[in-house]
């Protein structure tokens, strides 16, 4: 029997809808788990905290902090194939709309101007602030990707076809 391909799904700043689309592949996903795919990392679905080296790494969402960028810069050598998974990773997507506003405006809107905020409760959270990226860019600005699969999220059937192709590629290279 052929070895299963290892798959990791890593999310950056995302809505998790791309993962849900994968869950919505339903029986097709379970069939893949039966004999073709070894899911080793996907924080929404499992507790594994890290992954070593994988055949396929699917990245969802956008880099929002310097730390995200640092993470992205070290994934290349850990994965044979990297996929920009979804419109956020491919283009910047809906979170990219933040590019239309100054960062200060984003923070003030949320933490100072909301009508439901109580008086005296309007300090912008700062205890954790690590540098936000000035601009939201597609992830291929930080890491070479092998495939881009846009869609917000990609429809489950398209996703299934896509995985089928990538898996073929993985096994082809093995021969």
């Amino acid at each position: 029997m052929k070895r299963k391909a290892t798959l990791a799904i890593q999310d950056l700043c995302a809505c998790d809808g791309c993962e849900v689309a994968m869950a919505d592949m339903g029986h097709v996903l379970l069939d893949l788990l039966d004999d073709k795919v070894d899911l080793v990392y996907a924080p929404l679905f499992m507790s594994a905290r890290d992954y070593g080296e994988v055949d396929i790494l699917m990245l969802t969402g956008v880099a929002r902090t310097e730390e995200d960028i640092a993470d992205l810069r070290q994934v290349r050598q850990r994965a044979r194939y990297i996929v920009a998974f979804g419109s956020c990773a491919t283009f910047g997507g809906i979170p990219g709309l933040a590019n239309l506003h100054e960062q200060a405006t984003l923070l003030e809107t949320a933490y100072q101007n909301a009508p439901s905020l109580r008086t005296g409760e309007k300090t912008i959270p700062d205890e954790l602030l690590s540098a936000l990226t000035g601009e939201i860019l597609p992830i291929n600005a930080y890491v070479d990707v092998d495939f881009s699969l846009p869609g917000c999220p990609p429809p489950p059937r398209l996703l299934a076809d896509f995985l089928e192709r990538v898996l073929k590629q993985v096994t082809l290279k093995e021969k």
Binding site: L12, C13, R64, E67, T109
Partner: peptide
């Protein structure tokens, strides 16, 4: 819903 600071899981 309101930025996105990402850190470890």
């Amino acid at each position: 819903h309101a930025l996105s600071m990402e850190e470890d899981l």
